[in-house]
């Protein structure tokens, strides 16, 4: 399946997870990885399944590389109907704004009529799991869901 992974990163941890997903699933799927800083909302191919990876930073804000995309989306009346997306967050439960970055991004996409597939999962930097140990099975499940949706259509 064709999949576009878009990441918003501040420290590079989310970028690393994107690269890990590409290495892990790149032989089974046609995966393209892009930094959200290099993408405008009107660039999104609505026929392709999009996986967003997004951290939080500062006071529950979006990470720096996601901000221009979010600002452009917020200011536009783009209709993202037809776009299927899943979203995975990275956060740190030391802070009460845990996971706010990915939540904001998910809300914006849904508001613009994109269709969220499956739950938003948030990796906690305080927890014992590595981000990829959570993200790999989550990714496989989301891909299976989208395949099922496509088969049903």
């Amino acid at each position: 399946m064709k999949i576009t992974i878009l990441y918003g990163t501040e420290t590079g941890n989310t970028e690393m997870l994107s690269e890990d997903l590409e290495s892990e699933f790149g032989s089974d799927h046609e995966i393209e990885v892009k930094n959200l800083s290099d993408v405008a909302p009107e660039d999104l191919d609505l026929t392709v399944f999009h996986v967003f990876l997004c951290s939080s930073y500062g006071d529950g804000e979006l990470p720096a590389s996601a901000k221009p995309f979010a600002e452009a989306l917020g200011a536009s009346d783009a209709d993202l109907s037809g776009l299927r997306f899943a979203i995975f967050g990275l956060g740190d439960s030391d802070y009460e704004t845990f996971g706010h970055g990915s939540e904001q991004l998910a809300d914006m996409l849904v508001k613009h009529k994109a269709q969220q597939v499956g739950p938003r999962l948030i990796h906690d930097a305080q927890g014992g799991d590595l981000a990829e140990d959570l993200a790999f099975p989550w990714f496989e499940e989301r891909v299976a869901e989208v395949e099922a949706l496509s088969d049903a259509a």
Partner: peptide
């Protein structure tokens, strides 16, 4: 020392 999440960037550097 009680901000282990922040210290997590070391995983990138280990690579």
């Amino acid at each position: 020392p009680d901000h282990q999440g922040t210290k997590g960037v070391a995983r990138q550097f280990a690579r």
